[in-house]
Lab assay of single mutants.
Amino acid sequence: MIINNLKLIREKKKISQSELAALLEVSRQTINGIEKNKYNPSLQLALKIAYYLNTPLEDIFQWQ
């Protein structure tokens, strides 16, 4: 199972779901689904999230 800290990191950086979704060219619902662990992002999307949040990938997504 993958645990993610996306919501915590996104809120710490004061970025809304809508703003992050626009940067990543995905829907706000996609961001919401990832934050709620409804599904895991593709590797490409995970890397883009880490890039736009300027945060190491392993700080956002962790195996458990």
Rank of each mutant, 00 (worst) to 15 (best):
M1T: 08
K36E: 15
Q44S: 11
Q64T: 13
E11V: 12
I60R: 00
L24P: 00
L6F: 03
L53Q: 02
Y51G: 08
A22M: 12
L20C: 02
S27Y: 03
I49K: 00
E58W: 11
E35Q: 02
I3F: 10
Y39C: 09
N32R: 14
I3E: 08
L57M: 11
K13R: 13
K36V: 12
Y52A: 14
W63E: 04
Y51T: 09
N54Q: 13
Y39W: 10
K13Y: 08
Q62C: 07
N4G: 04
N32D: 15
N40S: 14
Q62H: 08
G33P: 01
Q17W: 03
K7A: 11
N4Y: 01
R28Y: 11
T30C: 11
A22S: 12
L45V: 06
R28L: 15
L6R: 00
N54W: 08
Q29L: 11
Y52L: 11
K13V: 10
L47W: 09
K7F: 06
L45D: 04
E25D: 13
N54S: 14
L43S: 06
Y52T: 11
L53E: 00
F61E: 01
E25R: 14
L24W: 01
E25V: 08
W63L: 05
N4V: 03
I15H: 04
Q64S: 13
N32L: 13
L47S: 10
S18Y: 12
T55K: 04
K7C: 06
F61T: 01
D59L: 12
Q44A: 15
M1N: 06
E35K: 01
K12P: 02
G33T: 09
E19I: 08
V26G: 02
I9L: 10
E25T: 08
L57H: 03
I2W: 09
N54Y: 06
I2P: 07
L47R: 13
P56S: 08
I34K: 00
Q64V: 12
Q62M: 09
L23R: 10
Y51W: 12
P56A: 10
K12D: 11
A50R: 03
E58N: 14
I31F: 03
V26C: 07
T55S: 09
N5F: 06
A22E: 14
K13M: 14
S42T: 13
A46E: 02
Q64W: 08
Q44I: 12
N37G: 14
R28N: 13
E58D: 14
T30L: 15
V26E: 04
A21I: 03
N37M: 06
I31D: 00
A50L: 02
F61L: 03
E25K: 13
L45G: 02
I9Y: 10
L45E: 05
I9F: 09
I15M: 15
